[in-house]
Design a protein around this nucleic acid. Structure first.
Lengths: 230, 230
DNA sequence: GCAAAAGTGTTGTGTCTACACCCATGT
DNA sequence: ACATGGGTGTAGACACAACACTTTTGC
Protein backbone atom coordinates (compact mmCIF):
# COMPACT_ATOMS: atom_id res chain seq x y z
CA UNK A 1 0.00 0.00 0.00
CA UNK A 2 1.09 3.54 -0.55
CA UNK A 3 2.88 5.14 2.35
CA UNK A 4 2.27 8.63 3.65
CA UNK A 5 4.87 10.38 1.56
CA UNK A 6 3.49 9.00 -1.67
CA UNK A 7 0.02 10.15 -0.64
CA UNK A 8 1.26 13.68 -0.23
CA UNK A 9 3.33 13.78 -3.38
CA UNK A 10 2.12 11.82 -6.35
CA UNK A 11 4.79 10.45 -8.62
CA UNK A 12 4.75 11.76 -12.15
CA UNK A 13 5.25 9.69 -15.23
CA UNK A 14 5.66 10.79 -18.85
CA UNK A 15 4.41 8.55 -21.64
CA UNK A 16 4.39 8.70 -25.39
CA UNK A 17 2.05 7.28 -27.98
CA UNK A 18 4.54 6.84 -30.81
CA UNK A 19 2.79 6.12 -34.10
CA UNK A 20 4.08 5.06 -37.47
CA UNK A 21 2.44 3.71 -40.60
CA UNK A 22 3.95 0.29 -41.24
CA UNK A 23 2.79 -2.16 -43.85
CA UNK A 24 -0.32 -0.14 -44.56
CA UNK A 25 -1.39 -0.07 -40.91
CA UNK A 26 -1.08 2.49 -38.15
CA UNK A 27 1.09 0.99 -35.43
CA UNK A 28 2.12 2.05 -31.94
CA UNK A 29 5.39 1.44 -30.17
CA UNK A 30 4.97 -0.76 -27.07
CA UNK A 31 7.25 -2.61 -24.68
CA UNK A 32 6.44 -5.68 -22.66
CA UNK A 33 6.55 -5.30 -18.89
CA UNK A 34 8.54 -7.97 -17.07
CA UNK A 35 7.77 -6.77 -13.58
CA UNK A 36 4.71 -6.06 -11.51
CA UNK A 37 2.48 -4.27 -11.63
CA UNK A 38 1.14 -5.52 -14.94
CA UNK A 39 3.95 -8.00 -15.63
CA UNK A 40 3.32 -9.56 -19.05
CA UNK A 41 1.24 -6.62 -20.21
CA UNK A 42 2.33 -4.15 -22.85
CA UNK A 43 3.05 -0.53 -22.04
CA UNK A 44 3.68 2.81 -23.67
CA UNK A 45 7.31 3.94 -23.59
CA UNK A 46 8.15 6.52 -20.94
CA UNK A 47 9.11 6.68 -17.31
CA UNK A 48 9.33 8.87 -14.28
CA UNK A 49 9.71 12.56 -14.83
CA UNK A 50 13.31 13.43 -14.19
CA UNK A 51 14.51 16.67 -12.66
CA UNK A 52 15.98 19.66 -14.38
CA UNK A 53 13.89 19.76 -17.52
CA UNK A 54 10.40 19.92 -18.88
CA UNK A 55 8.00 17.07 -19.45
CA UNK A 56 8.95 17.24 -23.10
CA UNK A 57 12.69 16.93 -22.55
CA UNK A 58 11.96 14.13 -20.14
CA UNK A 59 9.88 12.12 -22.59
CA UNK A 60 12.54 12.69 -25.25
CA UNK A 61 15.14 11.28 -22.88
CA UNK A 62 13.02 8.24 -22.10
CA UNK A 63 12.29 7.65 -25.75
CA UNK A 64 15.96 7.82 -26.60
CA UNK A 65 16.22 4.41 -24.95
CA UNK A 66 13.70 3.00 -27.44
CA UNK A 67 14.13 4.84 -30.71
CA UNK A 68 16.49 7.39 -32.10
CA UNK A 69 14.75 10.58 -31.09
CA UNK A 70 15.86 12.32 -34.24
CA UNK A 71 13.41 10.09 -36.05
CA UNK A 72 10.48 11.75 -34.29
CA UNK A 73 9.12 14.21 -36.81
CA UNK A 74 6.50 15.58 -34.43
CA UNK A 75 5.84 15.56 -30.70
CA UNK A 76 2.95 17.20 -28.89
CA UNK A 77 1.31 16.97 -25.48
CA UNK A 78 -1.89 14.96 -25.33
CA UNK A 79 -3.31 15.02 -21.81
CA UNK A 80 -2.55 14.42 -18.17
CA UNK A 81 -4.30 11.51 -16.48
CA UNK A 82 -4.88 11.69 -12.76
CA UNK A 83 -7.33 9.03 -11.64
CA UNK A 84 -5.96 7.97 -8.23
CA UNK A 85 -6.78 4.37 -9.13
CA UNK A 86 -4.95 4.41 -12.46
CA UNK A 87 -1.84 2.83 -10.93
CA UNK A 88 -2.47 0.16 -8.30
CA UNK A 89 0.79 0.55 -6.40
CA UNK A 90 1.14 4.29 -5.98
CA UNK A 91 -0.47 7.66 -6.52
CA UNK A 92 0.77 8.46 -9.99
CA UNK A 93 0.00 11.14 -12.52
CA UNK A 94 0.80 10.58 -16.15
CA UNK A 95 1.29 13.14 -18.88
CA UNK A 96 0.98 11.62 -22.33
CA UNK A 97 2.56 12.84 -25.54
CA UNK A 98 1.89 11.99 -29.15
CA UNK A 99 4.97 11.26 -31.27
CA UNK A 100 5.01 10.57 -35.01
CA UNK A 101 7.62 8.72 -37.05
CA UNK A 102 7.79 8.97 -40.86
CA UNK A 103 7.53 5.82 -42.91
CA UNK A 104 11.00 6.16 -44.38
CA UNK A 105 12.81 5.40 -41.15
CA UNK A 106 12.89 2.04 -39.41
CA UNK A 107 14.34 2.53 -35.96
CA UNK A 108 16.16 -0.37 -34.38
CA UNK A 109 14.39 -1.39 -31.19
CA UNK A 110 15.41 -3.03 -27.95
CA UNK A 111 14.47 -6.67 -27.25
CA UNK A 112 11.31 -5.97 -25.30
CA UNK A 113 9.89 -3.39 -27.70
CA UNK A 114 7.86 -3.81 -30.88
CA UNK A 115 5.23 -2.17 -33.02
CA UNK A 116 1.56 -3.14 -32.63
CA UNK A 117 -1.34 -2.22 -34.91
CA UNK A 118 -3.50 0.31 -33.09
CA UNK A 119 -6.68 -1.47 -34.05
CA UNK A 120 -5.44 -4.77 -32.65
CA UNK A 121 -3.74 -3.78 -29.42
CA UNK A 122 -2.63 -6.45 -26.96
CA UNK A 123 -3.62 -6.18 -23.29
CA UNK A 124 -2.17 -2.87 -22.12
CA UNK A 125 -1.10 -1.91 -18.62
CA UNK A 126 -2.62 0.94 -16.61
CA UNK A 127 -4.77 3.27 -18.74
CA UNK A 128 -2.47 3.00 -21.70
CA UNK A 129 -5.15 1.73 -24.04
CA UNK A 130 -7.44 4.78 -23.81
CA UNK A 131 -4.37 6.98 -24.03
CA UNK A 132 -3.27 5.24 -27.22
CA UNK A 133 -6.70 5.59 -28.74
CA UNK A 134 -6.79 9.27 -27.74
CA UNK A 135 -3.49 9.68 -29.56
CA UNK A 136 -4.94 8.15 -32.68
CA UNK A 137 -7.98 10.42 -32.49
CA UNK A 138 -5.79 13.48 -32.13
CA UNK A 139 -3.78 12.40 -35.15
CA UNK A 140 -6.91 11.79 -37.21
CA UNK A 141 -8.36 15.19 -36.40
CA UNK A 142 -5.12 17.00 -37.11
CA UNK A 143 -4.65 15.21 -40.43
CA UNK A 144 -7.84 16.96 -41.49
CA UNK A 145 -7.06 20.55 -40.62
CA UNK A 146 -3.27 20.77 -40.31
CA UNK A 147 -0.23 19.67 -42.27
CA UNK A 148 0.79 16.91 -39.77
CA UNK A 149 0.93 14.56 -42.67
CA UNK A 150 4.58 15.58 -43.02
CA UNK A 151 5.34 13.70 -39.81
CA UNK A 152 4.06 10.39 -41.16
CA UNK A 153 5.03 10.66 -44.82
CA UNK A 154 8.51 10.07 -46.20
CA UNK A 155 10.43 13.13 -47.33
CA UNK A 156 9.21 12.78 -50.91
CA UNK A 157 6.42 10.63 -52.28
CA UNK A 158 3.93 10.10 -55.04
CA UNK A 159 0.27 10.77 -54.39
CA UNK A 160 -0.60 7.12 -54.13
CA UNK A 161 2.12 6.59 -51.55
CA UNK A 162 0.75 9.51 -49.57
CA UNK A 163 -2.76 8.21 -50.02
CA UNK A 164 -1.73 4.90 -48.48
CA UNK A 165 -0.35 6.73 -45.46
CA UNK A 166 -3.60 8.68 -45.00
CA UNK A 167 -5.69 5.55 -45.45
CA UNK A 168 -3.72 3.73 -42.75
CA UNK A 169 -3.93 6.63 -40.33
CA UNK A 170 -7.54 7.59 -40.94
CA UNK A 171 -8.89 4.07 -41.33
CA UNK A 172 -11.06 4.81 -44.33
CA UNK A 173 -10.70 5.16 -48.08
CA UNK A 174 -9.16 8.32 -49.48
CA UNK A 175 -9.05 9.25 -53.15
CA UNK A 176 -5.53 10.09 -54.32
CA UNK A 177 -7.00 12.40 -56.93
CA UNK A 178 -8.94 14.52 -54.49
CA UNK A 179 -6.29 14.31 -51.78
CA UNK A 180 -3.85 15.89 -54.18
CA UNK A 181 -6.24 18.64 -55.13
CA UNK A 182 -7.05 19.45 -51.53
CA UNK A 183 -3.46 19.51 -50.31
CA UNK A 184 -2.16 21.43 -53.28
CA UNK A 185 -4.99 23.94 -53.06
CA UNK A 186 -4.11 24.46 -49.42
CA UNK A 187 -0.49 24.88 -50.43
CA UNK A 188 0.57 22.03 -48.16
CA UNK A 189 2.15 19.99 -50.94
CA UNK A 190 4.74 21.11 -53.43
CA UNK A 191 5.60 19.21 -56.62
CA UNK A 192 9.31 18.44 -56.83
CA UNK A 193 9.18 18.22 -60.61
CA UNK A 194 10.49 14.66 -60.51
CA UNK A 195 8.57 11.54 -61.42
CA UNK A 196 8.85 8.10 -59.97
CA UNK A 197 9.39 5.10 -62.27
CA UNK A 198 6.46 2.67 -62.26
CA UNK A 199 6.66 -0.83 -60.76
CA UNK A 200 6.98 -4.00 -62.78
CA UNK A 201 3.24 -3.98 -63.47
CA UNK A 202 3.66 -0.85 -65.56
CA UNK A 203 1.61 2.27 -65.27
CA UNK A 204 2.28 5.92 -65.74
CA UNK A 205 5.11 7.32 -63.62
CA UNK A 206 3.79 9.38 -60.73
CA UNK A 207 4.72 12.95 -59.96
CA UNK A 208 6.80 13.33 -56.80
CA UNK A 209 5.70 15.76 -54.08
CA UNK A 210 7.02 16.99 -50.79
CA UNK A 211 5.44 18.83 -47.89
CA UNK A 212 6.13 22.53 -48.23
CA UNK A 213 6.80 22.84 -44.50
CA UNK A 214 7.77 20.31 -41.87
CA UNK A 215 6.49 22.41 -38.99
CA UNK A 216 2.95 22.06 -37.75
CA UNK A 217 0.59 24.63 -39.24
CA UNK A 218 -3.16 24.94 -39.35
CA UNK A 219 -4.19 24.74 -42.97
CA UNK A 220 -7.95 24.64 -42.80
CA UNK A 221 -9.18 27.53 -40.75
CA UNK A 222 -12.64 26.62 -39.60
CA UNK A 223 -15.02 27.48 -42.36
CA UNK A 224 -17.67 28.85 -40.11
CA UNK A 225 -17.43 31.71 -37.69
CA UNK A 226 -14.11 32.76 -39.01
CA UNK A 227 -13.15 36.44 -39.00
CA UNK A 228 -14.24 38.35 -42.10
CA UNK A 229 -11.52 38.65 -44.76
CA UNK A 230 -9.37 41.85 -44.65
CA UNK B 1 16.46 27.91 -2.99
CA UNK B 2 14.78 24.59 -3.57
CA UNK B 3 15.89 21.81 -1.25
CA UNK B 4 16.63 18.27 -2.28
CA UNK B 5 13.17 16.87 -1.71
CA UNK B 6 11.52 19.47 -3.91
CA UNK B 7 14.05 18.66 -6.63
CA UNK B 8 13.09 15.02 -6.56
CA UNK B 9 9.36 15.55 -6.34
CA UNK B 10 7.91 18.55 -8.11
CA UNK B 11 4.87 20.08 -6.51
CA UNK B 12 1.75 20.02 -8.65
CA UNK B 13 -0.67 22.86 -9.01
CA UNK B 14 -4.06 22.93 -10.71
CA UNK B 15 -5.27 26.14 -12.32
CA UNK B 16 -8.38 27.23 -14.15
CA UNK B 17 -8.97 29.80 -16.83
CA UNK B 18 -12.56 30.71 -15.97
CA UNK B 19 -14.17 32.76 -18.71
CA UNK B 20 -17.45 34.62 -18.89
CA UNK B 21 -18.87 37.19 -21.28
CA UNK B 22 -19.57 40.29 -19.22
CA UNK B 23 -20.63 43.63 -20.61
CA UNK B 24 -19.89 42.52 -24.16
CA UNK B 25 -16.36 41.47 -23.35
CA UNK B 26 -14.73 38.14 -22.61
CA UNK B 27 -13.39 38.24 -19.08
CA UNK B 28 -11.28 35.94 -16.93
CA UNK B 29 -11.48 35.37 -13.21
CA UNK B 30 -8.30 36.46 -11.40
CA UNK B 31 -7.23 37.01 -7.81
CA UNK B 32 -4.56 39.34 -6.55
CA UNK B 33 -1.59 37.73 -4.81
CA UNK B 34 -0.69 39.28 -1.46
CA UNK B 35 2.38 37.15 -0.84
CA UNK B 36 5.58 36.38 -2.61
CA UNK B 37 6.36 35.14 -5.10
CA UNK B 38 4.58 37.63 -7.35
CA UNK B 39 2.97 39.65 -4.54
CA UNK B 40 0.80 42.30 -6.18
CA UNK B 41 0.43 40.32 -9.38
CA UNK B 42 -2.79 38.70 -10.50
CA UNK B 43 -3.18 34.93 -10.71
CA UNK B 44 -5.49 32.26 -12.03
CA UNK B 45 -7.58 30.53 -9.38
CA UNK B 46 -6.34 27.14 -8.28
CA UNK B 47 -3.90 25.64 -5.83
CA UNK B 48 -1.94 22.59 -4.94
CA UNK B 49 -3.28 19.26 -6.08
CA UNK B 50 -4.85 17.60 -3.10
CA UNK B 51 -4.84 13.89 -2.46
CA UNK B 52 -7.58 11.39 -3.00
CA UNK B 53 -9.05 12.66 -6.23
CA UNK B 54 -8.32 13.61 -9.79
CA UNK B 55 -6.98 16.87 -11.11
CA UNK B 56 -10.51 17.74 -12.08
CA UNK B 57 -12.03 17.17 -8.66
CA UNK B 58 -9.14 19.13 -7.23
CA UNK B 59 -9.65 22.17 -9.44
CA UNK B 60 -13.37 22.04 -8.65
CA UNK B 61 -12.56 22.11 -4.96
CA UNK B 62 -10.23 25.06 -5.37
CA UNK B 63 -12.73 26.91 -7.49
CA UNK B 64 -15.44 26.38 -4.91
CA UNK B 65 -13.59 28.98 -2.83
CA UNK B 66 -14.01 31.54 -5.61
CA UNK B 67 -17.28 30.82 -7.38
CA UNK B 68 -20.16 28.49 -6.91
CA UNK B 69 -18.99 25.51 -8.91
CA UNK B 70 -22.50 24.73 -10.04
CA UNK B 71 -22.23 27.84 -12.18
CA UNK B 72 -19.51 26.24 -14.28
CA UNK B 73 -21.30 25.03 -17.36
CA UNK B 74 -18.21 23.41 -18.84
CA UNK B 75 -14.78 22.35 -17.63
CA UNK B 76 -12.04 20.73 -19.70
CA UNK B 77 -8.32 20.15 -19.38
CA UNK B 78 -6.08 22.52 -21.29
CA UNK B 79 -2.44 21.58 -20.84
CA UNK B 80 0.27 20.82 -18.31
CA UNK B 81 3.13 23.28 -18.03
CA UNK B 82 6.47 22.02 -16.81
CA UNK B 83 9.19 24.56 -17.46
CA UNK B 84 11.44 24.18 -14.39
CA UNK B 85 11.81 27.97 -14.32
CA UNK B 86 8.09 28.68 -14.40
CA UNK B 87 7.95 29.10 -10.61
CA UNK B 88 10.94 30.82 -9.03
CA UNK B 89 10.66 29.25 -5.59
CA UNK B 90 10.13 25.59 -6.30
CA UNK B 91 9.94 22.93 -8.98
CA UNK B 92 6.29 23.10 -9.83
CA UNK B 93 4.14 21.56 -12.53
CA UNK B 94 0.81 23.13 -13.38
CA UNK B 95 -2.17 21.54 -15.08
CA UNK B 96 -4.55 24.12 -16.46
CA UNK B 97 -8.28 23.76 -17.05
CA UNK B 98 -10.73 25.85 -19.02
CA UNK B 99 -13.99 26.67 -17.25
CA UNK B 100 -16.95 28.53 -18.75
CA UNK B 101 -19.69 30.47 -16.94
CA UNK B 102 -22.95 31.45 -18.67
CA UNK B 103 -23.89 35.11 -18.83
CA UNK B 104 -27.04 34.64 -16.78
CA UNK B 105 -25.25 33.97 -13.53
CA UNK B 106 -23.23 36.50 -11.58
CA UNK B 107 -21.28 34.66 -8.93
CA UNK B 108 -20.42 36.52 -5.76
CA UNK B 109 -16.66 36.72 -5.38
CA UNK B 110 -14.22 36.99 -2.49
CA UNK B 111 -12.47 40.31 -1.76
CA UNK B 112 -9.29 39.59 -3.69
CA UNK B 113 -10.99 38.22 -6.81
CA UNK B 114 -12.43 40.03 -9.84
CA UNK B 115 -13.06 39.67 -13.54
CA UNK B 116 -10.59 41.10 -16.04
CA UNK B 117 -11.05 41.50 -19.81
CA UNK B 118 -8.88 38.95 -21.54
CA UNK B 119 -7.61 41.47 -24.03
CA UNK B 120 -6.52 43.87 -21.30
CA UNK B 121 -4.98 41.59 -18.72
CA UNK B 122 -3.06 43.05 -15.79
CA UNK B 123 0.43 41.77 -14.95
CA UNK B 124 0.00 38.06 -14.27
CA UNK B 125 2.12 35.85 -12.07
CA UNK B 126 4.06 32.83 -13.30
CA UNK B 127 3.06 31.74 -16.81
CA UNK B 128 -0.59 32.54 -16.23
CA UNK B 129 -0.83 34.96 -19.13
CA UNK B 130 0.05 32.45 -21.87
CA UNK B 131 -2.21 29.94 -20.16
CA UNK B 132 -5.10 32.40 -20.19
CA UNK B 133 -4.56 33.17 -23.85
CA UNK B 134 -4.38 29.46 -24.63
CA UNK B 135 -7.74 29.09 -22.90
CA UNK B 136 -9.24 31.79 -25.08
CA UNK B 137 -7.84 30.14 -28.21
CA UNK B 138 -9.31 26.80 -27.20
CA UNK B 139 -12.66 28.43 -26.63
CA UNK B 140 -12.56 30.20 -29.97
CA UNK B 141 -11.73 27.04 -31.86
CA UNK B 142 -14.42 25.02 -30.12
CA UNK B 143 -17.05 27.69 -30.71
CA UNK B 144 -16.55 26.96 -34.39
CA UNK B 145 -16.92 23.21 -34.49
CA UNK B 146 -18.74 22.23 -31.29
CA UNK B 147 -21.77 23.36 -29.35
CA UNK B 148 -19.74 24.93 -26.46
CA UNK B 149 -21.79 28.05 -26.95
CA UNK B 150 -24.23 26.56 -24.43
CA UNK B 151 -21.65 27.13 -21.71
CA UNK B 152 -21.44 30.88 -22.34
CA UNK B 153 -25.03 31.66 -23.34
CA UNK B 154 -27.92 32.06 -20.92
CA UNK B 155 -30.45 29.25 -20.85
CA UNK B 156 -32.67 30.97 -23.42
CA UNK B 157 -31.87 33.89 -25.68
CA UNK B 158 -32.71 35.73 -28.85
CA UNK B 159 -30.34 35.51 -31.77
CA UNK B 160 -28.95 38.99 -31.22
CA UNK B 161 -28.20 38.16 -27.59
CA UNK B 162 -26.40 35.04 -28.73
CA UNK B 163 -24.63 37.00 -31.42
CA UNK B 164 -23.30 39.39 -28.79
CA UNK B 165 -21.90 36.47 -26.82
CA UNK B 166 -20.14 35.08 -29.89
CA UNK B 167 -18.79 38.49 -30.83
CA UNK B 168 -17.31 38.95 -27.37
CA UNK B 169 -15.75 35.50 -27.32
CA UNK B 170 -14.48 35.44 -30.90
CA UNK B 171 -13.41 39.07 -31.07
CA UNK B 172 -14.84 39.73 -34.50
CA UNK B 173 -18.19 40.55 -36.07
CA UNK B 174 -20.77 37.81 -36.47
CA UNK B 175 -24.01 38.12 -38.37
CA UNK B 176 -27.00 37.11 -36.29
CA UNK B 177 -28.81 36.06 -39.45
CA UNK B 178 -26.16 33.64 -40.56
CA UNK B 179 -25.31 32.50 -37.05
CA UNK B 180 -28.90 31.39 -36.67
CA UNK B 181 -28.92 29.53 -39.96
CA UNK B 182 -25.68 27.75 -39.21
CA UNK B 183 -26.61 26.70 -35.69
CA UNK B 184 -30.13 25.67 -36.62
CA UNK B 185 -28.91 23.72 -39.64
CA UNK B 186 -26.48 21.89 -37.39
CA UNK B 187 -29.35 21.21 -34.99
CA UNK B 188 -27.49 22.95 -32.19
CA UNK B 189 -30.23 25.50 -31.54
CA UNK B 190 -33.88 24.83 -30.93
CA UNK B 191 -36.61 27.48 -31.11
CA UNK B 192 -38.64 27.60 -27.90
CA UNK B 193 -41.65 29.07 -29.69
CA UNK B 194 -41.58 32.10 -27.41
CA UNK B 195 -40.72 35.63 -28.42
CA UNK B 196 -39.01 38.29 -26.41
CA UNK B 197 -40.60 41.74 -26.06
CA UNK B 198 -38.57 44.51 -27.71
CA UNK B 199 -36.72 47.19 -25.73
CA UNK B 200 -37.90 50.78 -25.31
CA UNK B 201 -36.56 51.63 -28.76
CA UNK B 202 -39.10 49.34 -30.36
CA UNK B 203 -38.39 46.72 -32.96
CA UNK B 204 -39.86 43.40 -33.80
CA UNK B 205 -39.85 40.89 -30.93
CA UNK B 206 -37.15 38.29 -31.38
CA UNK B 207 -37.72 34.55 -31.39
CA UNK B 208 -36.32 32.80 -28.34
CA UNK B 209 -33.94 29.83 -28.72
CA UNK B 210 -32.19 27.38 -26.51
CA UNK B 211 -29.29 24.99 -27.02
CA UNK B 212 -30.63 21.54 -27.78
CA UNK B 213 -27.99 19.91 -25.61
CA UNK B 214 -25.89 21.25 -22.80
CA UNK B 215 -23.22 18.58 -23.17
CA UNK B 216 -20.22 19.12 -25.37
CA UNK B 217 -20.66 17.62 -28.83
CA UNK B 218 -18.78 18.02 -32.08
CA UNK B 219 -21.19 19.54 -34.55
CA UNK B 220 -19.01 20.25 -37.55
CA UNK B 221 -17.20 17.11 -38.54
CA UNK B 222 -14.22 18.23 -40.56
CA UNK B 223 -15.37 18.73 -44.09
CA UNK B 224 -12.33 17.22 -45.66
CA UNK B 225 -10.95 13.74 -45.26
CA UNK B 226 -14.00 12.54 -43.46
CA UNK B 227 -15.09 8.95 -43.88
CA UNK B 228 -17.41 8.32 -46.84
CA UNK B 229 -21.12 8.39 -45.94
CA UNK B 230 -22.80 5.07 -45.01
C1' DG C 1 -2.76 -4.32 -78.05
C1' DC C 2 -3.87 -4.62 -73.24
C1' DA C 3 -3.52 -4.00 -68.34
C1' DA C 4 -2.06 -0.94 -64.79
C1' DA C 5 -1.33 3.25 -62.64
C1' DA C 6 -1.46 8.36 -62.83
C1' DG C 7 -3.58 12.53 -64.10
C1' DT C 8 -7.32 15.81 -65.97
C1' DG C 9 -11.89 17.68 -66.84
C1' DT C 10 -16.30 18.31 -65.41
C1' DT C 11 -20.51 18.14 -62.97
C1' DG C 12 -23.01 18.21 -58.95
C1' DT C 13 -23.76 19.16 -54.06
C1' DG C 14 -23.68 21.16 -49.70
C1' DT C 15 -22.42 24.97 -46.82
C1' DC C 16 -21.51 29.19 -46.06
C1' DT C 17 -21.58 34.80 -46.88
C1' DA C 18 -23.69 38.92 -48.38
C1' DC C 19 -27.30 41.70 -49.21
C1' DA C 20 -31.73 43.23 -50.46
C1' DC C 21 -36.07 43.23 -48.86
C1' DC C 22 -40.04 42.41 -45.67
C1' DC C 23 -42.25 42.26 -40.81
C1' DA C 24 -43.58 43.70 -36.10
C1' DT C 25 -43.13 46.63 -32.55
C1' DG C 26 -42.57 51.50 -29.72
C1' DT C 27 -43.07 56.36 -29.86
C1' DA D 1 -45.55 57.84 -39.85
C1' DC D 2 -41.15 56.39 -38.99
C1' DA D 3 -37.31 54.58 -36.50
C1' DT D 4 -35.65 50.33 -34.69
C1' DG D 5 -34.55 45.85 -34.61
C1' DG D 6 -35.92 40.96 -36.20
C1' DG D 7 -36.61 37.75 -40.05
C1' DT D 8 -36.74 35.82 -44.88
C1' DG D 9 -35.36 35.05 -49.63
C1' DT D 10 -32.02 34.54 -52.78
C1' DA D 11 -27.86 34.75 -55.37
C1' DG D 12 -23.06 33.88 -55.46
C1' DA D 13 -18.60 31.91 -53.85
C1' DC D 14 -16.19 28.13 -52.62
C1' DA D 15 -14.54 23.60 -51.50
C1' DC D 16 -15.15 19.27 -51.98
C1' DA D 17 -16.77 14.35 -53.90
C1' DA D 18 -17.58 11.51 -57.64
C1' DC D 19 -16.73 9.81 -61.89
C1' DA D 20 -15.76 9.57 -66.70
C1' DC D 21 -12.05 10.02 -69.61
C1' DT D 22 -7.17 10.54 -71.08
C1' DT D 23 -2.14 9.73 -70.65
C1' DT D 24 1.96 7.04 -69.90
C1' DT D 25 4.13 3.20 -68.81
C1' DG D 26 5.31 -2.43 -68.73
C1' DC D 27 4.51 -6.64 -70.86
Amino acid sequence: MANTSTRLHPTHVVLAVVLQVRGGRLEALLWERRQDPFAGYWALPGGYLDGGGTLETSIRRHLAAKVDVRELAHLEQLETRSDPARAPHEWQLATAYLGLVPTDVNPSLPEDTTWHPVDKLPALSFDHEPITLAGRERLRAKLSYTNVGFALAPSTFTMSELRDVYVAALGHEVSATNLQRVLVRRRVLQPTGERRAPGRAGGRPGAVFRFRSRNLAITDQFAVLRPPPR
